[in-house]
Write a protein that binds this DNA or RNA. Structure first.
Length: 495
RNA sequence: GUCCCCAUCGUCUAGUCAGGUCCAGGACACCGGCCUUUCACGCCGGCAACACCGGUUCAAAUCCGGUUGGGGACGCCA
């Protein structure tokens, strides 16, 4: 079988957003599955809008997601000679022509047509049949010209067979003569893209349905340039709840890949979520390892229906699509603990909470602690947020549980230090022993054990919720527990 | 307006090509229960959809036609 070669060709005019990342992911999956080649090609021919920051952002985003490429990044502007040469070839063979119509003229004609027939006719072909003499005359006058592709004068329809959508047809008559080179001599996307895909020997073009009208025109370009047509697969778009195409401009950072890195998402969780937008394996499986997904993926199971990114602005609990959060949580609590340890390490380092011993003598403690607390967390950020008390002595106490579990019972100011003393006196600082003395004390004080236990949790971890109290106690160790329980005065003083 | 694509729970979707096993399955979210010192996790249960109209057929989510609805593209952007 022919080698599979695919490409991801972002234009560097903004950060990598999740729609683009999904396109990259599908191409990547397809390439991996077929032991093919994935090419990253930066389409930077729009010089006004392309930025280095955007190029960096795209590369960083892809790298973070783990979507690697085999060739590139290539830069489209470096191949301008190829594009111009192709345009000249088309010109020479009569498959393209110079057009001297100005933007203003075209605009006027378009408006007139709209007013008269309420119908946008596209380019009217005014320059299509200019003789060689007429062209020469205009050039002699120094009139600027664009190069337009000459749509074949054929009856009937053009078609191609899409791997997702089946046969796509479009009447030749509906395809206007489109511009392939600007009047300043710079080639345009429609042409560059095809020339590059031919040169890069792309076999499969997997891109969004928003390219479908481009595809019909590009099919003509392939034919005119005498190249074999690649396989096309148009994937559905991702929309917002208002059913509008998601965009950087409209939705801001919540659609940026970068946002998910900053929010503490596991990269593969985002990939897993993204692949489920517009694709499914035909089974009930929803969680995939990298290898499983590469194996299971197929173009024919890409959906034809646009999917909605279920994000409602302003909801603190669901700061992005709830399913994406759920998938992230799933990985957080099921992934191999060593792997999680690496990811949390980065978070701790960023907050200057990392202790080198966690990689050495205290590694078992470190991994055990992560395992203890990960069940309740949503993102990697929680390890340094809600989980801060496990790694630092400076941590905030959530005012809500402070009021409810501690300040509500003023006598705890005395009771907690009493508990500290008893813990300090224990022969064996175990879950069983600490629980025993806690219950004993509660009994003596004639209060429910929960009063002491919940107050302890709040003081020791700063949180309303957490793992089993006596596991926490053992994990933190006697010193910290005694210390934290003995000094609760300031909590009451502040109140 | 023109051309193209699409239409199953709130969201992601299975089922549509090869009509019956679908009074429509799974997941997320939501609600309830169990577990529990808290909150989660986990487990159990619940709510919730074939856009509409017509046709074909013994039988339609599935095939055909139309309507409505949604999206995309209509640049000397990519």
């Amino acid at each position: 079988m022919e080698e599979v070669r695919v490409r991801f060709p972002p234009s560097p005019t903004g950060y990598l957003h999740i729609g683009g990342a999904r396109t990259a992911l599908f191409n990547w999956l397809f390439a991996k599955q077929h032991n093919g080649t994935m090419i990253l090609r930066i389409e930077d021919t729009d010089e006004e809008r392309s930025t280095q920051a955007s190029i960096d952002g795209i590369i960083d985003g892809m790298t973070w997601l783990g979507l690697d490429w085999d060739e590139g990044p290539y830069f489209q502007t470096e191949f301008e000679h190829d594009h111009i040469a192709a345009a000249n070839r088309l010109l020479a063979s009569g498959q393209a022509y110079k057009c001297f119509c100005t933007k203003e003229e075209l605009e006027r004609k378009r408006e007139a047509a709209m007013a008269e027939k309420k119908h946008d006719i596209g380019y009217d072909g005014a320059c299509r049949h200019l003789s060689a003499e007429e062209v020469a005359a205009r050039e002699g006058q120094g009139l600027p010209a664009v190069i337009r592709f000459k749509t074949p004068e054929r009856q009937g329809v053009l078609f191609y067979d899409d791997e997702v959508l089946g046969r796509i047809e479009r009447a030749y008559a509906d395809i206007e003569d489109f511009v392939i080179v600007r009047s300043n001599g710079k080639p345009l996307y429609l042409l560059c893209n095809v020339v590059d895909d031919i040169r890069d020997r792309i076999t499969h073009i997997i891109r969004g349905q928003d390219h479908m009208t481009n595809t019909t025109r590009q099919v003509l370009l392939y034919e005119a340039l005498g190249a074999k047509l690649p396989v096309f697969a148009h994937m559905p778009l991702t929309l917002d709840l208002q059913k509008a195409k998601i965009s950087k401009r409209k939705h801001g950072e919540v659609v940026a890949v970068q946002y998910y890195r900053d929010m503490g998402f596991i990269p593969w969780a985002l990939c897993n979520f993204l692949c489920l937008m517009g694709w499914n394996p035909g089974t009930d499986q929803e969680y995939f390892t990298r290898e499983e997904l590469i194996e299971a993926f197929s173009l024919s199971r890409i959906s034809r229906v646009n999917s909605v990114f279920n994000y409602k602005p302003g909801d603190p609990k669901f700061f992005t699509d709830p399913k994406l959060i759920a998938i992230n949580e799933h990985y957080l609590r099921t992934m191999p603990i060593e792997e999680l340890g690496e990811m949390v390490r980065s978070e701790l380092e960023r907050e200057q909470l990392w202790d080198q011993a966690y990689a050495g003598a205290r590694r078992d403690w470190y991994l055990h602690t992560l395992n203890l607390i990960r069940d309740r967390f949503h993102t990697l950020k929680d390890f340094t947020g809600a989980g801060r008390a496990y790694f630092a002595d400076e941590y905030a106490i959530d005012p809500k549980p402070l009021a409810k579990n501690v300040l509500k019972e003023p006598q705890l100011a005395a009771w907690l230090p009493m508990l500290a003393e008893r813990f300090a006196a224990l022969d064996a600082f175990t879950a069983e022993e600490t629980e025993r003395v806690s219950r004993e004390l509660a009994d003596e004080l004639a209060v429910k054990p929960g009063v002491l236990i919940n107050a302890m949790r709040t003081v020791l971890t700063g949180q309303l919720a957490g793992p089993s109290m006596f596991e926490i106690v053992v994990t933190l160790g006697r010193d910290k527990v005694v210390q934290r329980l003995a000094r609760v005065d300031h909590l009451f003083a502040a109140a």
